[in-house]
């Protein structure tokens, strides 16, 4: 193992920590997978009115982010919505 590998390598304990942090955010928010699915569907409905989006590639999750104030890490709704065509609405 080279030195570069050593620094890049993500230990299994770090993997565990990261996974736990994520799962606990949604656990604590009391957000069940069904509710997430509903939020996802609602977002799709709204966005689809204006732009054509790639529903297969759509990804919505609750994650953590550094707050802009000084509150440390706060939960955030992260949505990755690939756009297929911006001009659909100009027809």
């Amino acid at each position: 193992m080279s030195l570069a590998d050593f620094f890049k390598k993500k230990t299994s304990s770090n993997v565990a920590k990261d996974r736990l942090k994520l799962v606990l955010v949604s656990d604590r928010a009391g957000c069940s997978p069904e509710i997430m699915e509903q939020i996802k569907n609602d977002i799709i409905t709204v966005i689809s009115r204006y732009i054509e989006i790639d529903m297969e590639g759509l990804d919505i999750k609750i994650t953590q982010t550094q707050s802009e104030g000084n509150n440390g890490v706060v939960p955030a709704l992260f949505a990755n919505i690939p756009i297929k065509d911006l001009k659909t609405n100009k027809k």
Partner: peptide, 16 residues
């Protein structure tokens, strides 16, 4: 195991 990075330390657990 903590030392070789294969177990969360007590500090990690407390942080979470």
């Amino acid at each position: 195991m903590v030392k070789r990075g294969d177990m969360m330390s007590s500090g990690d657990v407390v942080e979470i």
